[in-house]
């Protein structure tokens, strides 16, 4: 407590009570689950609107849908996997939209909570991606995938003592962990940043001399809101492109 500034404990910022379902049950439905549900509904509505009246010259919702899909196709799939990766497009598109909508709730009024500022969402998505790229590797290379992934050819024999543990760690442990932590920590940091400036604005909203600082604080709040919109998009993009890179690296043995 500094100058009457009372920062709420972090549990109040990120933990939400269940709307229904018992307290510690595995199916307790809270705000985070609701945001995930909205992610499906919003994506489906967008795509259905976009697909309703298909025309050669897109406009409106169709334009939005097509440019996002084309962005993921050209900017992510073709860039990292080549034409062979087109079959993984549905996974990457759903990943992108799920994360983007989960993130964008950070700045939507009355929600102000990114679903991915809870470890659950990023962890699940990272684990699915982990399982997916291992499955792709097994499908494309057979059981040799593990050998190829852990012991890349072309390394001097003596170095394998060093390389094998490092490659094992980086491919099977660090990848999903960093994938989840990157998204989670970015969103949590942004959320805490916005909360900090909001709390500062509320505290400064007094009749004292401190009110002089209020415009600065409020300007920072507005600017950071814009910044967080960019971060929400960027993190969805980065998660998707990393998933694409991992899947792409499983498709072909390293050379």
């Amino acid at each position: 407590m500094i100058f009457g500034l009372e920062f709420p404990p972090i549990e109040n910022l990120v933990e939400w009570p269940n709307w229904f379902g018992p307290k510690d049950s595995f199916y307790g439905f809270n705000k985070i689950a609701f945001i995930s549900l909205v992610a499906i509904v919003a994506t489906s509505v967008l795509f259905i609107l976009g697909n309703r009246k298909r025309s050669m010259v897109p406009k409106g919702a169709q334009n939005l849908v097509e440019s996002s899909v084309a962005f993921i196709r050209d900017g992510i799939v073709l860039e990292t996997m080549g034409p062979d990766g087109m079959r993984y497009l549905p996974y990457l598109v759903s990943l992108f939209f799920f994360i983007l909508i989960g993130n964008i709730f950070e700045v939507i009024p009355f929600f102000h909570m990114p679903a991915n500022a809870r470890m659950a969402g990023p962890a699940v998505l990272a684990l699915i991606t982990w399982a997916y790229y291992i499955a792709v590797g097994l499908k494309h290379q057979g059981p040799k995938y593990f050998i190829n992934a852990i012991a890349p050819p072309g390394v001097p024999k003596a170095l394998y003592i060093l390389v094998v543990p490092i490659e094992f760690l980086s491919t099977f442990i660090v990848r999903p962990f960093s994938l989840a932590v990157r998204l989670f920590a970015n969103m949590l940091a942004g959320h805490i940043l916005l909360v900090t400036f909001s709390v500062l604005c509320i505290t400064l909203f007094t009749a004292s001399l401190l009110a002089l600082v209020l415009p600065l604080s409020f300007f920072m709040l507005v600017a950071l809101t814009g910044f967080e919109v960019m971060v929400a998009f960027l993190q969805a993009y980065i998660f998707t492109i990393l998933a694409a890179v991992y899947i792409g690296s499983s498709m072909h043995a390293e050379h």
């Binding site: 269940n18 379902g21 510690d24 049950s25 595995f26 199916y27 307790g28 439905f29 809270n30 985070i32 689950a33 995930s36 549900l37 992610a39 499906i40 994506t43 489906s44 795509f47 259905i48 976009g50 697909n51 298909r54 849908v65 097509e66 899909v69 497009l89 549905p90 996974y91 598109v93 759903s94 939209f97 799920f98 679903a115 809870r118 470890m119 659950a120 969402g121 962890a123 699940v124 998505l125 699915i128």
Partner: peptide, 30 residues
């Protein structure tokens, strides 16, 4: 740490979105 109920719902909803995207939403666009 991740919480069980949020993980459960995220998994369910993401699986639904993935299936929808694969079979319903994306094919017309492609």
């Amino acid at each position: 740490l991740p919480v069980m109920n949020e993980m459960f719902w995220t998994l369910v909803f993401f699986a639904i979105l993935w299936a929808l995207m694969k079979f319903v939403l994306l094919p017309p666009v492609m």
